[in-house]
């Protein structure tokens, strides 16, 4: 009896996002049937892919109970480096993508060194690098808008069999991340570390290296995300990516990643980002005042966080020792 109740509440807690998602889709579908047409759905996923790619990376960090506030600045600086590679060295788009991701790896390494080696807490480290990375980027551009060569937009607006490139990249990133998290030793160790850093150390895992890699992965994803978004616009202005860290964290948390570590998945981040975008576009579709949209989004995130908090309480209650049979 109690077991089955437990299972139901467990299911609701674990799948809160999917349940909310289903509710939102059904609601909009009734309000505006055209919302559920393939074109509209493809558009949602496309718009979600930018935050989504970064949210997949953020999930790695959140799994270790860390946080990365610098993603917005990485989304700015990395495509900028790629832009120089294209404009000044005349390199083609694929090289530029690699340049952007490599920049992300370097920036992530800086975070990792500060956190793992110098033991500055992630919040402060990434708060500082948020300023540093953006400052460095705008120093390079002298706060001017940076125009990319035209090929980049051709790339950004291209597609394969009618599927827009951002969606393909998003899918690829999510799939790779899923494989890494669910099916590699490193991935499982990330979960173990998030569940109990002390336990991971005792089990002989190389905890520093695990932690370092998640920050590198997070920055690399943020870099790719920034590049994909720039490829839509073709130019980079000084405020690009500002405040994006909060959207990215919100998407990951909405996708079921716990801020306390150990819980979350790449697939969840995809759902989280898509859910946010669905709510956003749905509000547009149903003609809700533009200004009210962030408020409704906020409320939905609030519910997700509330559920996360309750789930954590439930986990703690479960861990409490019972000393006699129930």
């Amino acid at each position: 009896m109690t077991r089955s109740m437990d299972k139901i509440s467990d299911f609701v807690f674990r799948n809160a996002t999917y349940l909310i998602f289903a509710g939102v889709l059904i609601y909009y579908g009734i309000q505006a049937p055209s919302f559920l047409t393939p074109e509209s759905l493809v558009n949602i996923v496309k718009q979600a892919s930018f935050t989504g790619i970064a949210a997949v990376g953020m999930t790695f960090v959140l799994l270790t109970a860390g946080i990365d506030l610098s993603v917005g600045s990485v989304m700015f600086l990395a495509p900028l480096m790629a832009g120089y590679v294209m404009r000044d060295l005349g390199m083609p788009v694929p090289v530029a993508v690699v340049a952007a991701v490599l920049t992300g790896v370097v920036l992530g390494s800086i975070n990792a060194i500060l956190i793992v080696r110098l033991r500055v807490i992630p919040f402060i480290t990434t708060l500082a690098t948020l300023f540093l990375f953006r400052g460095f980027g705008t120093w390079l551009t002298s706060s001017q808008q940076f125009d990319f060569p035209d090929e980049i937009r051709a790339f950004g607006l291209s597609g394969v069999f009618g599927i827009p490139t951002p969606i393909i990249v998003f899918t690829a990133v999510a799939l790779v991340a899923h494989l890494v998290l669910a099916h590699t030793e490193f991935g499982r160790q990330v979960y173990a570390f998030g569940n109990s850093p002390e336990g991971a150390r005792k089990a002989g895992l190389k905890v520093g290296w695990i932690q370092a890699r998640v920050y590198i992965i997070c920055s690399a994803c943020a870099a790719l995300s920034g590049f994909m978004l720039i490829a839509q616009i073709g130019r980079l202005d000084a405020a690009f990516g500002e405040g994006a860290e909060f959207d990215v964290i919100a998407a990951a948390v909405l996708g079921g990643a716990s801020l306390f570590g150990g819980i979350g998945s790449a697939f969840g981040a995809v759902i989280g980002a898509t859910l946010i975008q669905t709510v956003k576009l749905g509000l547009v579709f149903t003609g809700v005042n533009l200004y009210l949209q962030p408020i409704i989004q906020g409320v939905i995130i609030f519910i997700a966080v509330l559920v996360d908090g309750m789930r954590e309480k439930q986990v703690l209650a479960k861990m409490k020792r019972t000393i006699r049979p129930l």
Binding site: A250, N289, L292, I301, V305, K313
Partner: peptide
């Protein structure tokens, strides 16, 4: 009371209250 992390709670109020401020005067 609800045991939510301060970071997320105040992040959400930041988004919502900030949006309310902009909505009131339409920025």
């Amino acid at each position: 009371v609800f045991g939510m992390p301060a970071f997320m709670v105040t992040l959400v109020t930041m988004i919502v209250i900030g949006a309310v401020a902009i909505y009131l005067s339409l920025s």
